[in-house]
Design a protein around this nucleic acid. Sequence first.
DNA 1: AACTATATGCGAGCAGTGCTCTTGCTTTCT
DNA 2: AGAAAGCAAGAGCACTGCTCGCATATAGTT
Lengths: 237, 237
Amino acid sequence: MSEPGIRARNRAAIMAAITDSANRQLLEAGPSELSVRAVARELGMASSAIYRYVSSRDELLTLLIVGAFNDMAQSVEARAERMKGARKRWQVIGLASRDWAIEQPQRFALIYGSPVPGYAAPQDTIGPATRIPALLIGILQEAHVQADVSAFDARVARSLRPALANLDQWADLRTREFNDAAFALGVMAWTHIIGSISFELFGHRHNVVGDSQSDRRTYFEFELNVLADLLGIGQGV
Amino acid sequence: MSEPGIRARNRAAIMAAITDSANRQLLEAGPSELSVRAVARELGMASSAIYRYVSSRDELLTLLIVGAFNDMAQSVEARAERMKGARKRWQVIGLASRDWAIEQPQRFALIYGSPVPGYAAPQDTIGPATRIPALLIGILQEAHVQADVSAFDARVARSLRPALANLDQWADLRTREFNDAAFALGVMAWTHIIGSISFELFGHRHNVVGDSQSDRRTYFEFELNVLADLLGIGQGV
DNA sequence: AACTATATGCGAGCAGTGCTCTTGCTTTCT
DNA sequence: AGAAAGCAAGAGCACTGCTCGCATATAGTT
């Protein structure tokens, strides 16, 4: 009964084989080139048989999206958790995110590029998508960050609180060690990390930052430092 | 001789009709859905006839990309040039960019989302793509911005100078009113504007910033203020 | 004015796509 | 053992980008 059963096991295996094959295609082709028939060919089955496991191409893409979010988050978490000190951890989060993206640019484009079809972000993605940001918030709390922005900016940041109200998932933000402006700056920081990686990967830095890997990395580290200062994550902590 | 001639005029008109039709499709469908055959249908000609004007679907997309860059730049320039004061102009550049993107999200995705095919950014795009950044650099010079970053960051920024060497197009950056770090921060600011718009448009802000237009705009303005302070564009100037 | 080269249009056709439906077979549950 | 559910395959539909051969209209040349 609770035994997996031959069929259930086969199903799981084939499911994995499908996403594996699709991910392999993504390594060199880009989301719009992903072909259900090509997956079927690689698995040696009829194209129609795929639809027993995945109801449409878009659903397959959603599976890959969730997988990519989780894979990236896991990769970043693994490197971040053995770092001591808020600033160091902040930098590792940024660098690890960038490294993952450079290794698998198509998967990065899949999750942070333009949404593929008509698209309505499926509910399944928001969980995996927030893993790294959650890590970031943790760092800001750990560092007891209190953002000192102008009075005007603070007012603006506070006005965003209603929107953030349903966010108990972000740990308890109501502690005094973490004000609204700090949260707003944290969102900015994460936005910038992804934005910068996108610029680099999508070719918007040609003739602006050097084309060599070392130039690009240097500039990215520069950005991480500026952001860390902006966030108020001290050197020593 | 120098007369346009019937054929040349026809050709230009049809060319314009093609890009117009394609752009119309982009308003509601997204780059990967763009269909040469659909364009042909709308123009009432055979699908094969399109290839007399455009050698491939990718070339058509490139035309649209150049057009989108120029359209966005023109829209932003128009609103920016009648503003006085560096900070005000900076904010208008940001807001106008965002407005354009919200009006035509698919065209924004076309130029700042994931690159479409195998892709190698054609040379024709880099000119139009740098119009708004050039505007930004102008503002920084106008405001006599001298970035005061940490010694470390300044060193990093300076190490990027070789990469920026071939950039005489960016007006004269060698003036004392504009140091390397200021340029690096300017690139950061532009990166952030596009990154933030992308996050908003591509749905990465759900459950983070309010879903209402006013919440989103408020947050964007918050970001612009923080960046202006970071750039050292004073309130009064 | 006649001729030739070039530019343009059309239709058929190829190879590929996502997806559906029918038909047969195998595993599972009762 | 028999019924029900799951699975695989093939044919087929409507669509795509793109090429080729064949007509026709325009342009420049003799």
